[in-house]
Design a protein around this nucleic acid. Structure first.
Length: 407
RNA sequence: GCGUCGGUGGCGGAGUGGUCAAACGCACUUGGCUGUAAACCAAGCGCCUUCGGGCUACGCAGGUUCGAAUCCUGCCCGGCGCA
């Protein structure tokens, strides 16, 4: 039977694992390498679907946990699925909720930088974003057992339970073209023993997720499913995880738990050598420009990341010459656009001075414009990377980009 | 003119005898943000510093006291009320 997803490699490089291709889905094609916009609650915060299109975004990824809580997967299903619901007529993905096992469990209330290992050791308990009333007595909103995960809703404290089967059921209702197996995303500070235990559990959950999907004839014909590689910061586990999942018949693979540059980016190529070459690979949650180059070079096809929108809302803006903080005093009278080389409508229309003013005066348009520009920047960067892979100039492009970007 | 209340750091505003370089908020400065509990979080914010501390400060000038932003006297300035 023909699968709803297919991947075609158009061009691959000989001196690295980089490749360019096309992921065909029921709602269109994703030309890779590609940056997928994060739309957790069926919205890429601040950006309308039509704007995303104009910014060059090809696909969005929603989240099963968040959409299950609000508005409820039935609502989205009744609306015709996540794409219809958010008026996005292009490819969609949904994440399984596995990351929330971490962020609402071990990660709750702790300041864990996703990328710098030095920070992780401290395990500082700093950032309590929501009131303690909502947290349970064990100080977490999620507890893992072998069957699944029990969550306390971060909205109202009510109790919920996810199992691989439930996550898949929710993702079936959400109806994205690409769904993800339910995994356990561990804390980056987890030791080898726990990481191994969690990985083995994730593998059992992967098998159950896959079965739950393949056994649903209708959904299996309409949606594709990716497995998620785990293993934390341990190379042996990462390789074991890749091999184990490679033997399961997923339509593609996500690489999860990418908490540390040092730990994950260094073994990405080893992971990808284990995974079947003819299937697409998605690097979950990674999106700094430098990291995207590393990912592509290691054989990653798609990326998703909250950074363009979160940074945009927080006043950090990507430019060809690195990141800038638009709220800094130096931009008060700057008549130039954010990035003179940028082709986005924000840069074609507005000055730094204006955007600076919007941020200082807390006008919501500032957040939107910064998010728009950032989203364009990442989508455009991956598009240029794609063209450089096809044209065989990847290395040259990478070097010239990074030379300017790192100033 | 008389009465009355009040004058605190860039602003608003606590404090009313010691633990006050002075709460808190705003503004400002600097960092951070990587499968979104994030339009958020953290630090700094009189001057100097060998980072131990030192110096100058709560309208101005005196005074009481071991000790004053806090009490007393005079002056200057502002609000309100009465003439």
């Amino acid at each position: 039977m023909k699968r709803p997803l297919s991947f075609a490699i158009e061009h691959e490089l000989s001196d690295s694992l980089a490749r360019a291709g096309k992921i065909a889905t029921p709602h269109g094609t994703i030309k890779t390498p590609a940056f997928i916009a994060v739309a957790t609650k069926a919205t890429a915060k601040g950006l309308q679907s039509t704007q995303l299109k104009d910014l060059g975004v090809q696909s969005v990824i929603g989240n099963a946990y968040h959409l299950y809580l609000t508005p409820g997967e039935k609502v989205v299903e009744a609306a015709g699925g996540i794409g219809k619901f958010m008026a996005w007529d292009a490819p969609t993905m949904t994440d399984s909720g596995g990351f929330q096992v971490f962020s609402l469990g071990e990660g709750l209330g702790k300041k864990v930088s996703k990328i710098s290992p030095e920070e992780i050791q401290h395990d500082e308990e700093v950032v309590m974003i929501y009131s303690e009333e909502v947290a349970t007595e064990h100080g977490k909103l999620a507890i893992v057992d072998d069957e699944g995960v029990t969550f306390t809703s971060h909205h109202d404290g009510s109790l919920h339970r996810f199992t691989p089967e439930r996550s898949i059921e929710i993702q079936h209702a959400l109806g994205a073209d690409i769904i993800f197996a339910f995994d356990e995303c561990t804390s980056p500070s987890a030791d080898h023993a726990y990481q191994k235990e969690a990985m083995d559990r994730t593998h059992r959950w992967a098998k159950r997720s896959l079965a739950a999907h393949r056994n649903n004839i209708e959904k299996n014909a309409a949606q594709g499913i990716y497995g998620i590689v785990q293993g934390g910061r341990y190379e042996d586990l990462r390789i074991e995880s890749s091999r184990t999942l490679a033997n399961m018949d997923f339509d593609g693979y996500g690489i999860g738990g990418s908490f540390s540059k040092r730990d994950i980016l260094g073994v990405l190529d080893k992971i990808n050598r284990e995974l079947p070459k003819e299937k697409p690979r998605h690097l979950l949650g990674i999106g700094e420009p430098e990291d995207i180059f590393v990912g592509v070079e290691a054989g990653i096809d798609t990326f998703d990341c909250v950074l363009p929108t979160r940074n945009g809302r927080n006043g950090t803006i990507y430019t060809a010459r690195g990141k800038m903080s638009i709220e800094r005093a130096e931009y008060i009278r700057d008549p130039l656009p954010i990035d003179t080389e940028c082709g986005c409508m924000v840069c074609k229309t507005h000055s730094c001075s204006y955007i600076h003013h919007l941020f200082r005066s807390k006008e919501m348009l500032g957040l939107v414009l910064a998010s728009m520009h950032n989203m364009y920047f990442l989508a455009n960067l991956t598009e240029r990377i794609r063209l450089s892979v096809i044209g065989g100039s990847f290395q040259t492009f990478k070097e010239s980009f990074l030379a300017t970007y790192r100033r």
